[in-house]
Amino acid sequence: MYWNMNPRDVMAELERMQRDYQQPLDQNPSIRGNGRSRFPALNVGGTPESVEIYAFAPGLDPATIELLLDRGVLTLAGERASELPADERRTAVHIGERFSGRFRRVVNLPEDADPESVSASYRDGVLHVSVRRRVAATPRRISVE
């Protein structure tokens, strides 16, 4: 789960749960899981020319993000170190909600996505992947003779 399984701040956990329930339910989860509460959270959208993926993955070194596109499946993986102290005798942890550890998220790209035309940038903790659609897939009017 996205949040800590040993909640230290019950109210904060409740707020997070409430937020998650406010999100629309995914009617048709993918066979690879919908990963709703996993890190990093994903927003996916598109235009007639491209598919745009936004991964909300703050605090990473961009050089360590693994991004793989294989047969229409985009995989995003990496690791985020914990900032909580190893020794709690000197430093007390009051709230520990942030994700740490290895992560992997998978996005199925539409068929018209062009694997040769992908760009990715990491800015302010968001990884933005843009995949062009093949030109042939752009709808065109067919005249009837």
């Binding site: 937020r19 406010q22 999100q23 629309p24 995914d26 709703r36 959270a41 994903l42 927003n43 996916v44 959208g45 598109g46 235009t47 007639p48 020319e49 491209s50 745009e52 936004y54 909300f56 800015r123 968001v126 933005h128 843009s130």
Partner: peptide
């Protein structure tokens, strides 16, 4: 977030 004009989100985990 930067994106092309006319972007429509189809899957949204960050509301």
């Amino acid at each position: 977030l930067e994106g092309p004009p006319g972007l429509q989100l189809t899957h949204q985990e960050v509301p």
